[in-house]
């Protein structure tokens, strides 16, 4: 565990907290993409299957990972529940039209071609990595459709992007300190994922500087 990874994970937790705070305080999920949330649910549930096989108390790290995995899975399920049931009437269904079936299909095909070992567990893991790299796209498209973004929603996406950026620093750190090689899959997808946020970062920082709400062109 290094400071970049810990910082990344903490930003991830903050982003989830901001997401739930936005829904609970405004009693609305306007501006949020249910499709992105569903994709994250799929990502977490295909990647964290090892929860069934790993003893949480094996080491301090597995304990930490287990807590975080359960947190991500449960908060993700809770967010979907809030958007689909309690605040359904505020959900912007008309604009949330990104076709996620194509993303899922593409990630599945890529996972069948590129994986580290030919096992169900490894293919699902690769699938989750591919899918995570594009899971934010429906959210970004929704924002582009509607134009102006609520502050808390833009902070949410900024934290998610920050988490991914810190993970890259973490990998560079581990490459040199632990001499880890052969991680092209996670590194490649992680870099693509971070690049997807680049455009958003630009407009986010611009809007912060001007002290205005974020507007996407």
């Amino acid at each position: 565990m290094n400071i970049f990874r810990l910082g990344g994970d903490m930003l991830h937790v903050v982003s989830i907290f901001l997401l739930l705070l936005k829904i609970q305080t405004s009693h609305s999920c306007a501006g949020l993409s249910l499709k992105t949330q569903i994709l994250y649910m799929v990502v977490f549930s295909t990647r964290y299957l090892d929860l069934f096989f790993t003893k949480p108390w094996h080491s301090a790290l597995t304990f930490y990972n287990t807590i975080m995995k359960i947190l991500f899975l449960s908060s993700s399920a809770y967010t979907i529940y809030l958007m689909q049931k309690r605040y359904k009437h505020t959900y912007d269904k008309v604009h949330d039209t990104f076709r996620i079936q194509y993303l899922i299909a593409a990630a599945a095909v890529l996972a069948l071609i590129f994986h580290l070992r030919l096992t169900v567990f490894e293919i699902l893991w690769a699938f989750s990595v591919f899918l995570e790299s594009v899971a934010i796209l429906p959210q970004l498209f929704l924002l582009q459709e509607t134009g102006e973004v609520e502050n808390i929603t833009s902070h949410y996406i900024f934290c998610l992007g920050g988490y991914r950026t810190l993970y890259i620093f973490n990998w560079v750190w581990r490459y040199f300190t632990e001499h880890r090689r052969n991680q092209w899959l996670a590194w490649g997808c992680g870099t693509v994922q971070t690049l997807i946020y680049a455009d958003f970062f630009y407009y986010y920082i611009l809007s912060r500087k001007q002290g205005k709400k974020l507007r996407l062109p």
Binding site: N65, W171, R180
Partner: peptide, 10 residues
Amino acid sequence: ELKDELKDEL
């Protein structure tokens, strides 16, 4: 070997 594949991350 799981250790090599970054599976100790989230």
